[in-house]
Amino acid sequence: MNNKDQPVRNRREFIQKLVGGAAAASVASTAAVIAGTEATPDENKPRQKHYGMLIDTRRCIGCHTCSVSCKSEFDVPLGVTRSWVEYTEKGTYPNVSRQFLPRLCNHCRHPQCVDVCPTGATYKRPQDGIVVVDSGQCIGCKYCIQACPYDARFLNPVTGFAEKCDFCIHRVSKGLEPSCVNSCIGGARIFGDLSDPTSEISRQLATNPTTVLRPGKGTEPQVYYIGADHSDEHENQRGWYDVRITTHRKEKGRR
């Protein structure tokens, strides 16, 4: 599935591309100088995209449709999840609230999973910024699972490879929305190209207060939230109010 558009691994191919690219660039600039016009960007070349997601938690009703549609889209085995919804219950009666937090891979700008992968099996696609796992290269060492600050990765118990959300690249590459976005009954998820200032997600990001998860880890997530409750059970140590997180995963606690 992910075989196309891999980064150049072969050195010779890389050098050929490098030399070819440099030659093409110099020819183009020379031609532009001769013609006396400025070089225009090649219309045929696909524009570099950077996909991202914005989740408006005010519209989320915690129905798990995204989790279920993700499971059915990918045949994700029992006990593991690519996409899931966490419930955050806070307070003491009568001052209580329950918030929903849909979770998935953040497709970070600086993905640590990519840095630590010893085989290059996981990489950030240069053309659209999606972080993918090439199961042909993955050895199942679980280093990426350790390195992910969001616990977004798991070892597929059937295949033994690391797996996670890939923004449904098989759908996205055909112009469709990811399955969780398509099925969300509250319309809470907006998917699109962050590098296009006219896209819906860019306009919403520009006009709303948004947050990302664990910004202190320096990963720069590309999944943004509106109205996300960042409360965590650690806050119970203060004893001021109760926080209870239900992850709806095999791992009961949030990592």
């Binding site: 840095d115 992968c117 010893p118 085989t119 290269q137 993955c138 050895i139 060492c141 280093y143 033994g160």
Partner: peptide
């Protein structure tokens, strides 16, 4: 422990800056 012992050979297709790659 990998579950698929021969998969470990994938480590030696390349060397990158991952500590596990250099370490292996």
């Amino acid at each position: 422990e990998l579950g698929q012992p021969f998969r470990a050979l994938n480590l030696f297709h390349l060397i990158n800056l991952s500590p596990m790659s250099i370490g292996s």
